[in-house]
Design a protein around this nucleic acid. Structure first.
Length: 276
DNA sequence: AGCAGTACCTGGTTGC
DNA sequence: TGCAACCAGGTACTGC
């Protein structure tokens, strides 16, 4: 589920409670996530203060004094800050108990029905972790510009939509926002990535940034299970121009939105507004 | 190297 | 109503 806007919404939701707090212990009810939850997670984090809550692509980083907790929400993960005595629900796999400076204890709780998410411990700077070291630039990094995109796409025959979802090219764009950004850029999802002009690349960079920005402002998209850290849904799904609108009229030109499955992924586009 | 396909999981929806 | 098939937002891995 969560793409960059949902992960960033989560980060903003949990950061105020966690920053400056001290971890006490971890409770692991289900260690089998995308990768096994480290058995020593509890002892690794115990008595360490949270320096900051950061994000790199779709990864959330709890930066502690002597290492980082690396979190990924996979397709169905969510994080909430709940009271210390809140009973766990099904799929609440991991609790990180922390104490605020006023002595009050709370829990950062990871729920993940599909268990494609991950929670890992890394001693040392998180960006050196193998999962993070190969990531492309953040979409709002000035390094992500038309020249960079054109250079990286040169010679590639794969569909531009697949390329956009490649986290080594640019981080944060998943299946929903790839379709949305391509609509705003006026580019067919099936277009060979290497055949985009420089103008196309410029339009796409701008479209990716504007799409993600608008989604973050709306608190992300809630489809199925995503909620913000306080349990409230996001609202950006109501602003989707193409995603999930198969057969519905394009809100710009009225043409029915088209849908196609490539691999196991659904792609949506307007045949008139996306001519290139 | 680049690409397509597969696997990992559970739960909600659809269709017979 | 019951049950099977299908579908879902991510990504590492395999093999061509």
């Amino acid at each position: 589920m969560p793409e960059l806007p949902e992960v960033e919404t989560t980060r903003r939701g949990i950061a105020p409670a966690l920053t400056g707090a001290t971890f006490r212990q971890a409770t692991i009810r289900q260690p089998r996530l995308r990768w096994a939850v480290p058995a020593d997670l509890s002892s690794q984090i115990a008595n360490q203060k949270v320096v900051c809550v950061a994000r790199r692509g779709k990864y959330l980083l709890l930066v502690l004094e002597h290492g980082s907790v690396i979190l990924h929400l996979g397709m169905s993960g969510s994080l909430r800050v709940v009271p210390d005595n809140e009973p766990p629900q099904p799929h609440d796999h991991v609790d990180l108990q922390f104490e605020a400076s006023d002595g009050r204890c709370q829990i950062l709780r990871l729920r993940d029905p599909r268990r494609f998410g991950a929670i890992l411990w890394h001693t040392g700077p998180a960006h050196a972790h193998p999962l993070l070291s190969g990531l492309g630039p953040e979409p709002f990094d000035p390094a992500f510009d038309a020249d960079y995109l054109r250079e990286r796409l040169r010679g590639r025959r794969t569909a531009i939509k697949s390329a956009l979802m490649d986290q080594g090219l640019v981080v944060g764009v998943g299946n929903i926002y790839a379709s949305e950004a391509l609509f705003h850029a006026g580019i067919r999802p099936s277009r060979a990535a290497g055949r985009l002009s420089r103008t196309d690349c410029q339009r796409l960079v701008t479209a990716v940034q504007q799409t993600l920005e608008a989604a973050m402002a709306a608190g992300g998209s809630t489809l199925r299970d995503f909620t913000q850290a306080d349990g409230a849904p996001g609202y950006f799904q109501h602003a989707h121009q193409v995603y999930g609108r198969d057969g519905a009229p394009c809100q710009r030109c009225g043409t029915p939105i088209r849908h196609r499955r490539h691999g196991q992924r659904s792609t949506f586009w307007c045949p008139v507004c996306q001519p290139r």
